[in-house]
Design a protein around this nucleic acid. Structure first.
Lengths: 144, 144
DNA sequence: TGGAAAGATGATTTTTTTATCAAGATATTG
DNA sequence: CAATATCTTGATAAAAAAATCATCTTTCCA
């Protein structure tokens, strides 16, 4: 569903979001705590910085910070630099146009999946994910 | 969403389903009519045959036929030989367990996407796709 | 001002996916 | 039984994705 790279990007940003907004977070630290290969995360972070999601500072005390509040970052913003949106929404039958008016055979069925996915990316904020990640397992009384 | 290979498999089976149940369909013919690379479709067809979705016969008059009626084939049956189901349902945070009881931060949000996708694969029959593909654009009066 | 701490960058490698090629095995038909 | 049509198989190649490596630049601070 999500590509490996997109997943890594989300994990990294969630981690950063959880560290508070004061100090920049080190690439190395992100790698260690998210289980993403160190060198690879550097590229991803750089791309995210280029994309305006992160800001980076070098030297001692440097690292990565969110470019804007987590509430204003959608998961879609995070993954778009790494995913081909056209490819994601393409028709599985290779039709150039595949719309409600000119549907392929799978159109009505597949549409629900695409819609769910697009909604997931468009509506879910980084903050929402970072918060519930912190809260941990659901807030019911412990079993047993 | 769907991998290229899964897409090809679905296209091929839809095409076969549309050719009626009498005569086997040639690999070559499938390739031509679905836009799938000829040599590649052969492998896919072979895998589908191994997977019990198709039967194949060689020699003159040979080709591929559905192993059972299109109504009894789910899209999930078609793509499972080509997709890693575990991978599809894995947690984007790499957690071993990621359930309603032990959710990752994205769990509730991502779940809807997974559910939609799994439902698409589990519920949609080959027949449904093959039929609506045949019917073409939706059945309203022509515009204009 | 020079050394260490960061990120930035470009080249390279590895792995996976997609695609092609060529030579087989089997069935039909005349 | 020979020729042809078909699928089968294994080797290989090309492309894309994921991962690594080495080197560079910037920044801080003693």
């Amino acid at each position: 569903m999500l590509t490996t790279t997109s997943e890594y990007a989300i994990r990294a940003l969630v981690y950063i979001a959880q560290q508070g907004e004061d100090e920049p977070v080190l690439a190395r630290e992100i790698a260690t705590n998210t289980g993403v290969p160190g060198n690879y995360i550097s590229k991803i972070l750089r791309d995210l910085a280029h994309g305006g999601i992160l800001t980076s500072t070098r030297g001692v005390g440097g690292g990565f910070k969110l470019a804007r509040p987590a509430k204003q970052i959608k998961l879609g913003d995070i993954v778009t630099p790494f995913e081909n949106v056209a490819h994601r929404n393409r028709c599985p039958f290779g039709n150039d146009v595949c719309s409600d008016d000119h549907p392929c055979g799978a159109h009505t069925h597949y549409k629900t999946v695409k819609n769910a996915y697009n909604k997931f990316l468009d509506k879910t904020t980084l903050q929402a994910v970072a918060q519930s990640q912190l809260r941990g397992p659901k807030k019911t009384r412990k079993k047993k």
